[in-house]
């Protein structure tokens, strides 16, 4: 009986860990898309952020500098995206895809030429990473049945970025629905002309959104390489940027539901690790690949029909031109 509780706690614990980059990327995408900029380049920004964080951390020995570098890389990518899609009114999807290619190539190339480890950055340890934080009383409460377990394992013992990710959700909800900035952000994604005729700069508002996007996704990238893992390896974002985007659509561009969807994807990922190699009655052992494909299959199925109509911000993907 206790074993079941331990198992569940462990699965939930890894659910949280696996959901963090999705949550950060999803919220990042939310700001961008709410402002009317489609951001398929989340994947590339996540990867670039992960690489920059690991490289900086490996060189300087400071996880915090690594985090800054991760955010910086994402900002550069967002800047390019903004330039292409806001100033030059280019196609946002194409610009995003190009950034993804750029990130994949650049991280491998720079990783190889700087560290010569086949794309890996050096193994990080100690202060080069964000280590788990033990919340107060976690040890003392360990013996309290159930609650002690949940507090000690599930709530305590994560790194700082995990807590940031979870706090970012209510903060985003507040910004979006309770602040002047949020009102304008939602408006510019629905009808930029309404913003323009109200005397507010559409360009400036959209850049502001892209900056927030970059900060969040950069933190998400840093999480991958210097919090969850101990270094960067090739293509370590592994489609999480796309999954985060799917979660965003799924959540209809709302922060609360986005958190839930990301947790669900994290959960699927977590049980996928647990059921690998296990034998099921009648079926026998399921191939690893089939289990690994599960979250993706679910994404397709759910997006294809289960969520009903997901109405994107009306102006998403449309460059704003001031003409009649």
């Amino acid at each position: 009986m206790d074993q079941i509780l331990v198992d569940i706690t462990l699965i939930l614990d890894s659910t949280v860990r696996l959901a963090v980059p999705l949550i950060l990327a999803s919220l990042a995408g939310l700001y961008s898309e709410r402002s009317g900029i489609i951001d398929i380049g989340l994947e590339g920004k996540l990867l670039a952020g992960a690489f920059a964080a690991a490289a900086m951390s490996a060189v300087t020995g400071s996880a915090w500098l690594g985090l800054l570098a991760g955010v910086g890389a994402a900002l550069v990518f967002s800047g390019i995206h903004g330039l292409a899609s806001i100033n030059f009114k280019g196609n946002q999807t194409i610009s995003g895809v190009a950034l993804n290619f750029l990130a994949a190539g650049l991280t491998t190339f720079l990783g190889q030429s700087w560290f010569r480890r086949g794309g890996y950055t050096p193994q990080l340890s100690g202060d080069q990473r964000f280590n788990p934080i033990t919340l107060p009383f976690a040890e003392e409460l360990r013996d309290v049945p159930v609650l002690g377990q949940i507090y000690g394992e599930l709530i305590s013992g994560h790194n700082i970025i995990t807590y940031v990710a979870f706090i970012a959700v209510p903060v985003t909800a507040w910004v979006l629905f309770r602040s002047r900035f949020g009102l304008r952000l939602r408006a510019v994604g629905e009808n930029p002309k309404a913003i323009d005729t109200a005397g507010i700069s559409v360009t400036r508002l959209r850049y502001q959104a892209l900056i927030i996007t970059a900060v969040l996704v950069g933190i998400g990238g840093a999480y991958l390489s210097i919090a969850q893992s101990a270094g960067f390896n090739n293509n370590m974002s592994a489609g999480r940027g796309y999954i985060a985007l799917a979660a965003l659509i799924f959540a209809k561009w709302r922060p609360g539901p986005a958190l839930l969807v990301c947790l669900m994807f994290g959960f699927l990922d977590a049980i996928q690790f647990r059921i690998q190699g296990q034998s099921f009655p009648f079926i026998g052992e399921v191939p690893v690949q089939a289990i690994q494909a599960l979250p993706y299959i679910l994404t397709v199925v759910l997006l294809a029909g289960f969520i009903g109509r997901a109405v994107a911000p009306k102006a998403a993907g449309v460059p704003y031109t001031k003409e009649r």
């Binding site: 629905f177 309770r178 602040s179 002047r180 900035f181 949020g182 009102l183 304008r184 939602r186 408006a187 629905e190 009808n191 002309k193 309404a194 913003i195 323009d196 005729t197 109200a198 005397g199 507010i200 009306k314």
Partner: peptide, 28 residues
């Protein structure tokens, strides 16, 4: 100016549309 094609955000309330851009504080 009242434009020929309305400059309104369809999924906002009347109130939200009216204050948009003329908010008197950062809190909504």
């Amino acid at each position: 100016m009242v434009h020929q094609h309305f400059m309104l955000v369809d999924n906002f309330t009347v109130l939200e549309n009216v204050v948009l851009g003329a908010e008197d504080s950062a809190l909504l």
